[in-house]
Amino acid sequence: MKDFEYAAAATLDEAVSLLAARGERAKILAGGTDIIVQLREGLREADLVVDVKKIPEIMTYRFDPASGLSLGAAVPCYRIYEDGDVAAAYPALADAARIIGGWQIQSRASIGGNLCNSSPAADSIPALIALGAACKIAGPEGMRSVPVEQFCTSPGKNVLRRGELLVSIQFPPPAAKSGSHYLRFIPRNEMDIAVVGAGAWLRMQDGVIAEGRIGLAAVAPTPKLAEQASRFLAGKPASEETFRQAGELARQSASPISDMRGPAQYRLHLVGVLTRRALAKAAERAGA
């Protein structure tokens, strides 16, 4: 790895102007657990590394049951699962934060970093999709917001333009009688990349599912919202049969590849199994 310049930006404006000036040759450092490896292994290159952990907005962590959660992009994962209120309000988020790497990774890695790394197999993104989160982005033209399912564009790529950076992730306030869950399939029990990941969120009303959302990972070039399967849930009873059918629909929306983490056929099979399991747990948490 060639040496690079290091700048710890103190404000969003400073970060934006540094990033705008250097473009592709500047890289953002949050927890560093992806970017440092990628620079070292030659997968990405940088002349300038901009540390964003001194920027107050990027380290915000604000939860209020009425207004929801504002999660600064560089807040490390452990803050989430150690916060009982947030873990209870957004269980799928806590599920994901708890299994991204081991403890050493969770001390540093952030949900925002997981998003910006934009891996198809990212653990947090299906949970964010299921929870209906939105990305708050700062840039030379000011702030904009993008639904989380539209953030990633292809493996390792996302909607961030020159000079832009992810500031925070906004979660809607937790709805009554709602529940969520994220789970993944890995061959080991920890420290592994998802062969398939599934996040689910459900809101119950009058004994049936009022609405639901399913996010998937490692089944397409980007993590994705399983739209048809999500729509199907509305008005259905929270039953094993409903979840099985939703799993089948989710399966139809998946287009996985074969690699060292698993053959495509197996991944397709897992989409059905994991979607069903994620929904069942989400329903249980919703009190269905």
Partner: peptide
Amino acid sequence: TNASFLDYRMPTALD
């Protein structure tokens, strides 16, 4: 294609 401890998958304490 899996020349790392991540994808070579040796057992951890949890396995």
